[in-house]
Deep mutational scan, measured.
Amino acid sequence: TVKFKYKGEEKQVDISKIKKVWRVGKMISFTYDEGGGKTGRGAVSEKDAPKELLQ
């Protein structure tokens, strides 16, 4: 599970739902399947990112 803040809201998403991951400076950005055909997005700092996300 990845915990992150998006627009001031605390969120979390299961690693299995993450589609795409990329690095922006010291942040790790990602998109994930929100269900219902929607794609969500989020970002975590490199130090807070789970190891599975960095692979």
Rank of each mutant, 00 (worst) to 15 (best):
Q55L: 14
I18K: 00
G36R: 07
G35F: 05
Y6V: 12
E10L: 14
P50Q: 03
S29V: 15
E34S: 09
T39W: 11
K20V: 09
Q55R: 13
V2L: 13
S16V: 10
G25I: 02
I18Q: 00
G35E: 09
A43N: 11
R41N: 07
Y6F: 11
D48I: 09
K51C: 11
K20I: 07
K19N: 09
K11E: 02
D14S: 13
Y6I: 10
M27P: 00
S45A: 14
T39F: 13
E46Q: 10
K20L: 11
E9H: 10
Y32G: 00
K3P: 02
W22F: 06
A49F: 13
S29T: 13
I15W: 05
Q55H: 11
S45D: 14
W22K: 04
K26S: 13
D48G: 07
K26V: 11
T31V: 09
A43K: 13
L53K: 01
K11C: 06
G35M: 06
P50Y: 02
D48Q: 10
G40H: 06
E34L: 15
G42L: 02
Y32V: 02
K7E: 07
E46K: 09
Y6A: 06
K19R: 13
A43H: 13
Y6N: 05
Y32K: 00
G40W: 05
E46H: 09
I28C: 02
E52W: 14
W22G: 02
K17S: 10
A49G: 02
A43Q: 15
S16E: 10
R41H: 13
L54I: 14
K7L: 10
V2Y: 02
K26L: 10
S29F: 15
S16G: 10
T39N: 06
K47P: 05
R23P: 03
D33Q: 05
I15D: 01
F30K: 00
K19E: 07
F4M: 02
K3W: 09
G35Q: 05
S29E: 15
D33H: 05
E46L: 14
K11L: 09
K19A: 05
G40L: 08
K38M: 09
K47Q: 13
L53V: 04
V24T: 13
E46D: 08
L54Q: 07
V2P: 01
V13H: 01
I28Y: 06
K17E: 06
R41L: 12
D33Y: 07
K47D: 13
L54R: 09
K38I: 12
M27Y: 15
R23A: 05
E10P: 08
R23V: 08
K3R: 14
T31C: 09
L53W: 08
L54K: 08
K3L: 09
Q12S: 14
F4W: 12
E34T: 10
S16T: 11
Y32L: 01
K51P: 15
G8P: 00
E34D: 12
S29Q: 15
I18M: 06
W22Q: 04
G35C: 04
G36M: 11
G35S: 05
D14G: 07
V21W: 12
K11M: 11
L54M: 07
F4L: 03
F30D: 00
K47L: 12
K51Y: 14
F4K: 00
P50E: 02
V21H: 04
D48S: 09
D14T: 07
S45N: 15
I18Y: 00
K11I: 13
D48L: 11
F30Q: 00
E34V: 10
K17I: 07
V24P: 02
R41F: 15
G37H: 04
E34P: 03
T39H: 07
A49V: 05
L54N: 03
L54G: 03
S29N: 15
K38V: 12
K47Y: 12
E46I: 14
K51W: 15
L54W: 08
I18N: 00
G42D: 01
V44S: 02
K5S: 11
Y32Q: 00
W22R: 05
T39A: 06
S45P: 14
E10V: 14
K20T: 10
V24S: 14
L54D: 02
V13W: 02
G35W: 04
K26T: 15
T31L: 13
G36A: 11
V21D: 01
I28T: 01
R23Y: 08
S16L: 10
Q55G: 08
G40V: 06
K26F: 11
T31F: 09
K7V: 03
K20E: 11
A43Y: 15
E46R: 11
V44Y: 02
E52N: 07
E10D: 13
S29W: 15
G42F: 04
E10Q: 11
G40A: 11
R23D: 01
G42Y: 05
S45V: 09
V21F: 08
K3S: 09
G25C: 06
V24Q: 13
V44Q: 01
T31Y: 10
E9M: 12
R41K: 09
M27N: 07
T1F: 15
D33M: 06
V21A: 10
K5D: 05
G8H: 05
K3D: 04
P50D: 03
D33L: 06
K5G: 04
Q12R: 09
E46V: 15
R41P: 01
R23N: 04
S45Y: 14
V44R: 02
G36E: 13
K20Q: 11
T31P: 00
K51V: 14
E9D: 08
K38G: 07
D14E: 14
A43F: 15
R23L: 06
V21P: 01
G8D: 06
S29A: 15
D48H: 12
K38S: 09
K5N: 11
A49Q: 02
D48T: 09
K11Y: 11
R41S: 07
R23K: 11
K7T: 02
A43W: 15
E46F: 15
L54A: 06
G35A: 06
Y6D: 07
K26W: 07
P50G: 04
A49L: 05
T1C: 10
I15G: 02
